[in-house]
């Protein structure tokens, strides 16, 4: 028994030492990324930011943007589809290096600024949250007040969730899903009165396909927002990405991309330039 305890203690000590050693030996983010030769962007699949084309290849504004940034830095961009509510865990555990998927510079649904969780790069695209209802209810739900007490759906951990809570008046009225599309499905199925999602996604999807019965409800115009890229707190990767974004903005690459994906009106001009 005594011997057994001693062996257990020894094993635990060795394990702990190994962990501490590993923690101490940690290199800076940029050094790690440079060494492995790529960074991993955490994404969800939605048009026009990251989606699969007809041949099954991943494409989209953010996909091409990230690839261009990686190229500037002499790296490769990899994309990992993640479950959006887990994004900070993915980021902090090192499973991904960047949150790069129409990531709104704003607040979480609990009102905490996202800057508490990540360091943002320069913003690159204008966005806003929009309210979606069934098309035949647009006339009925025509003021911000009309949404009070209504059942809402949104993507968990999205900035739309915060807007939904505000409009419906209580957190209990909002049900969240792992993707914006799942939230829309709930709306189609009649399980909720309205959804709050990204304008960019709404533009691409609402009113088409299985979402044909839905419409953007312009009765409410939440404040506009911007998209930026989220990096780990304190990461030296942020500055490197910013440099690359600035260069891509200057040389017109971003403008080209925006045009290709019909986002010209939303693209922020002269990113990183002195005011």
């Amino acid at each position: 028994m005594k011997r057994f305890t001693r062996i257990t203690a020894l094993v635990l000590a060795v394990l702990m030492a190994a962990f501490v050693f590993a923690a101490c030996g940690k290199k800076s983010d940029w050094a790690t990324v440079e060494e492995k030769g790529y960074f991993v962007c955490g994404i969800t699949v939605y048009a026009p930011m990251n989606y699969f084309d007809d041949d099954g290849n991943l494409t989209g504004f953010d996909t091409e943007f990230a690839t261009a940034v990686a190229e500037k830095l002499g790296l490769e961009a990899k994309f990992q589809v993640i479950s959006w509510p887990n994004k900070y865990m993915e980021l902090n555990s090192g499973a991904i290096d960047l949150i790069w998927n129409g990531f709104t510079y704003g607040n979480e649904s609990d009102g905490k600024s996202r800057t508490e969780y990540v360091d943002f790069t320069y913003a690159y695209l204008e966005n806003r949250q929009v309210v979606i209802t069934k098309a035949d209810r647009v006339a009925e739900l025509n003021t911000a007040e009309a949404f009070a007490g209504k059942k809402a759906v949104a993507e968990g951990g999205s900035s739309g969730e915060g807007v939904a809570v505000e409009l419906s008046g209580a957190e209990e009225n909002v049900t969240t899903f792992t993707s914006q599309s799942a939230a829309l499905m709930e709306l189609v199925a009649g399980n909720a009165d309205f959804a709050v999602i990204d304008y960019q996604m709404a533009k691409a999807m609402v009113g088409t396909g299985d979402y044909a019965v839905l419409a953007i409800n312009e009765a409410v115009q939440p404040e506009s927002e911007v998209y930026a890229i989220g990096a780990r707190k304190g990461s030296d990767l942020t500055a490197k990405i910013n440099e690359a974004i600035k260069a891509l903005s200057e040389d017109g690459t971003l403008a080209e991309l925006a045009e290709k994906y019909d986002l010209t009106n939303d693209l922020i001009p002269n990113i990183g330039a002195e005011a």
Partner: peptide
């Protein structure tokens, strides 16, 4: 979820 549900 990613390929189909995401497109409704």
């Amino acid at each position: 979820e990613m390929d189909y549900l995401a497109y409704g």
